[in-house]
Nucleic acid binder design. Structure first.
Length: 508
RNA sequence: GCCGCGUUCGUCUAAGGGUUAGGACACCACCCUUUCACGGUGGUGAUACGGGUUCGAAUCCCGUACGCGGUACCA
């Protein structure tokens, strides 16, 4: 019987959740759902100096907004907890010690200054960043270079130390990546990575292996930036005796900045004017607020959709997918190897498509909140729905609903009279007074009827109807945009329409 | 420097030995619309370079270039 599929997303709680992070979650989630497996959230908070309060809760909120809820995690529990590495601190040491015992790791007592001086000593133009590896191992202060007794004494005296992996001098480590195929590395070129830090916390390298094993992870998706350290992880699985349980690896391509190359960063977003984080993130230290996709007016459906397409497609021309469709159609073989530049214009296109596609009721509450935050008073939900439906085609972001619909809720204060004045005259003024009176007198109120009557009156007064449409629009809307004027008139009602015409006439 | 990974229109991508190299975003033009959008039609625009292999290469192989990632007691 095949093992149950289990995947994990393992962020470190250091700040806002980045686009690339969400895509990693997404691919994990899609794979797990499709295979009927479990999706685990594990918080990798082993670096106390980088810990940011609130970041974990923020990450969970982002996942919830995107609809990518973990089956297990610090917030929901599960049988493989705890799910925060800081709370698992006590379990890592034994594995590191075991590696020392079996000769695959060693104690190192070097102080930061000593490491620094080693790097200075071996630095050459050809080798600008010397590594702590088999070439210098014996020249450093560690249990390889010291005698057994010396090492014991240092340990007993409580001298701060780390545990490093002893990378073999001349082996080849290879594994099959689900996206890249066979990848191999020469162990002699990889450094002796620290496994357990002086503070007793594991580094990522030890923690990821131990936890993936203990949590029975079967498939590990992570960013391409981890590929160079993969041989360390593969060796650790082997040295710990768990080789047959090693997950299948998948190193995802990076999401690149739109201009030039390189990994997309928060700075690029600030610089180029688009969001990088899923939701608003407020740095608790600096109080800086970074705007997220959600607050900018993105629908989670669109956000997830556009991320899925950044590095994957189903081989057809289809670009719009629901989460359910993605679960059904996702396949790792179709994930690209190369990185993809992020295109904000295309991102907005996705959102626009989703606004048009989804029923108004789906995002009514969010838009209502946006409108109310701008001071619009909404009392009639049915009216709100009609208004949203009327303008949805011209809104790219949810926040666009404000500019596109505010004149449906309140009388425009600023009228673009310059669009009317040049061709304005007494005849037109008289026409509008007559038209307003006729409207007041009409028994029922249908846009189409009013349009017919309006045009008939224009013909009667010898004015081309076309010359009156723009003035009417300005009177009702305030500007040169919006849905059909008579549709607007029908929605806002007879009294309001006439009131706006009179108000405008005062200014002309 | 070293190691690893990558490279099709400006961008996201399809095409896994035989296509006028297809689609989408953006851009341009026209149509629709007595507004702005939506929508429709059409257009500009790509296989990094050099060698092989083959009747035939975007596709397979080898180089080169370029880019990115890593080279921390960060993840």
């Amino acid at each position: 019987m095949a093992k149950k599929v289990r995947v994990r997303f393992a962020p470190s709680p250091t700040g806002g959740l980045h686009l690339g992070g969400v895509r990693t979650v997404l691919y994990n989630y899609l794979f797990a759902r499709q295979q009927g497996g479990d999706f685990v959230l594990r918080i990798e908070d082993t670096d106390q100096s980088r810990f940011v309060p609130g970041a974990e809760e923020y990450i969970i909120n982002c996942l919830t907004w995107c609809g990518l809820k973990p089956d297990e995690g610090p917030h929901v529990g599960g049988e493989y907890g705890p799910y925060r590495q800081s709370e698992r601190k006590s379990i890592y040491r034994q594995y590191a010690e075991h590696l020392v015992q079996t000769g695959h790791a060693y104690y190192a007592f070097d102080r930061p200054e000593e490491l620094e001086s080693m790097r200075e000593r071996f630095k050459t133009p050809e080798n600008p960043s010397p590594q702590y590896d088999h070439k210098v191992r014996l020249e450093m202060r560690n249990s390889c270079s010291l005698t057994f007794e010396e090492t014991e004494t240092l340990l007993e005296d409580g001298v701060p130390h780390v545990i490093r992996i002893r990378m073999p001098e001349n082996e080849t480590v290879s594994f099959t990546d689900m996206i890249r195929g066979e990848v191999s590395f020469h162990t002699g070129l990889v450094d002796d990575k620290v496994l357990l830090k002086a503070d007793g916390m594991p580094t990522y390298h030890l923690a990821v292996v131990v936890d993936d094993y203990l949590m029975k992870i079967t498939h590990a998706f992570r960013g391409e930036e981890w590929l160079p350290s993969a041989p360390v992880h593969v060796l650790l699985w082997k040295y710990l005796g768990w080789e047959s349980d090693m997950p299948q690896w998948a190193h995802l391509p990076l999401i690149l900045k739109p201009d030039g190359n390189g990994k997309l960063s928060k700075r690029d977003g600030d610089r180029l004017g688009f969001p990088v984080f899923a939701m608003n993130w407020k740095d608790p230290k600096t109080n800086d607020l970074t705007t997220g996709f959600r607050e900018l007016g993105f629908l989670p459906e669109a956000f997830v959709n556009l991320l899925a397409m950044l590095g994957w497609n189903d081989g057809t021309a289809q670009e719009l997918f629901t989460l359910e469709e993605l679960v059904e159609k996702f396949s790792i073989d179709r994930v690209h190897k190369g990185g993809a530049k992020f295109d904000y214009e295309k991102a907005k296109w996705f959102n626009h498509e989703w606004i048009k596609k989804l029923p108004v009721a789906h995002y009514r509450d969010q838009v209502k909140t946006i409108l109310e935050s701008k001071g619009i008073v909404i009392t009639d939900e049915a009216f709100l729905d009609k208004a949203l439906h009327m303008v949805k085609d011209r809104c790219t972001l949810l926040t666009d609903f404000y500019e596109q619909s505010k004149f449906l809720f309140e009388t425009p204060q600023q009228l673009d009279l310059e669009a009317v004045k040049p061709k304005w005259n007494a005849d037109k003024k008289a026409f509008f007074e007559a038209a307003a009176s006729a409207m007041m007198a009409s028994a029922d109120w249908k846009g189409a009827d009013q349009e017919a009557a309006f045009k008939a009156l224009a013909t009667e007064k010898n004015i081309k109807p076309g010359e009156l449409m723009m003035p009417l629009r300005i009177m009702l809307v305030g500007g040169k945009f919006g849905p059909g004027v008579f549709d607007i008139a029908e929605l806002i009602g007879k009294e309001e329409t006439v009131k706006r015409i009179h108000a405008a006439l005062q200014q002309l």
